[in-house]
């Protein structure tokens, strides 16, 4: 049984207009997303701004209530629950199993609490006795490689990277089964980014973490994830094991994304195709395949008929009418 199974998840925001605030349309921020995360696996959710990746993660954390769909979560030694329809009250005991690492290490720590209190807050609100909390705090500080003296300091005494370690320690405090990491390194300096990426890799190895890694940086994603799901305007266009996706993308959008990333190698330049146009507006997505106005391989069918996700021979899924015939370029 997979740890998490998301099925046809939708999150729509109504657009109101006029004096009577009538609903005149809907922003389909997430429009039918399905994926699974196995135990111990890291799935990356990538895409450009407005693609709905953050909305998906917030729905899983139930910071947002989905419009429809199912989010089946099966904790170890537990029964499967559908997080999508769970009332908020019943969500609270489940919270300990799903924790989050935030993007902004400055906003995610309460400036008025000492680091020790920040890290142990999840333990405290879940009724862990004080002695046990102290012990666990020491473990956690060691785990994220922070000096034990940090616990009596306030967040303002730490750099961005160190704050991110504190945030990670807090997320790990309750032994969660799933970590949702929302752009955890994108606010950091390059030299610090590397430390946090390594720390995440370490934690995956040591603790067998399962992670949903939400990111826009395809380079970072290649380092940390086992599988990658690419989103475009509220839908997943391709899911595949990381290496396969980078070496041989099956969706033209994946190809365009990979081609757009500037590689830190001056000898590899000037031979890439740049995707034209702009990301579609999720309030008015194009008919058919949402990517068709920007796709160099568009045929008539793409303009009218929306492709569904279909399995590929390499163990992935892709939603493109021409997936079988196209030879797309990856990076290697």
């Amino acid at each position: 049984m997979n740890l998490l199974e998301v099925q046809d998840l939708q999150k729509h925001y109504p657009i109101h207009a006029g004096l009577l605030r009538r609903e005149v349309g809907r922003v389909r921020a997430v429009d039918g997303v399905s994926f699974q995360i196995a135990r111990g696996e890291t799935l990356a959710l990538v895409g450009e701004s407005g693609c709905g990746k953050t909305t998906v993660s917030r729905c899983i954390l139930r910071a947002l209530t989905p419009t429809s769909g199912a989010i089946r979560f099966t904790p170890e030694n537990g029964r499967a629950v559908d997080l999508a329809t769970l009332p908020k009250r019943q969500m609270r005991p489940l919270r300990r199993h799903i924790q989050m690492i935030f993007q902004d290490p400055y906003a995610s720590l309460n400036p008025r609490m000492m680091v020790g209190d920040i890290i142990t807050e999840p333990l405290k609100v879940n009724g862990v006795p004080a002695a046990e909390r102290r012990e666990r705090l020491m473990e956690l500080l060691e785990l994220v490689q922070m000096p034990p003296g940090s616990r009596t300091r306030f967040p303002h005494a730490f750099s961005g990277g160190q704050r991110q370690r504190i945030g990670i320690a807090r997320a790990l405090a309750l032994h969660p089964q799933l970590i949702v990491a929302d752009e955890p390194v994108s606010a950091l300096d390059v030299s610090v980014q590397a430390q946090i990426i390594n720390l995440l890799l370490d934690l995956q190895d040591r603790l067998g973490l399962s992670m949903l890694f939400v990111a826009h940086d395809l380079s970072v994603v290649r380092h940390v994830s086992d599988r990658v799901a690419v989103m475009y305007v509220g839908r997943i266009v391709e899911v595949a094991p990381t290496d396969a996706l980078y070496r041989a993308p099956r969706h033209p959008y994946t190809e365009a994304l990979l081609a757009a990333v500037p590689a830190p190698d001056p000898n590899r330049q000037h031979r890439r195709r740049v995707a034209q146009g702009e990301v579609a507006d999720p309030a008015r997505p194009p008919p058919g395949c949402a990517f068709h106005p920007r796709c160099p391989y568009t045929v008539d069918r793409c303009r009218t008929e929306r492709p569904e996700l279909a399995a590929t021979e390499s163990g992935g899924w892709v939603s493109c009418h021409r997936a079988r015939e196209l030879e797309l370029a990856g990076v290697r």
């Binding site: 919270r95 989050m100 906003a107 995610s108 008025r112």
Partner: peptide, 26 residues
């Protein structure tokens, strides 16, 4: 909407704790 308030909510903190421990002092 502040991240640290969301973090407290995700930790399972009660509404009262969020208001009195995190929001009011801020």
């Amino acid at each position: 909407e502040e991240d640290f308030v969301i973090a407290a909510e995700l930790a399972g903190a009660s509404q009262g704790r969020i208001i009195f421990r995190h929001m009011l002092p801020s």
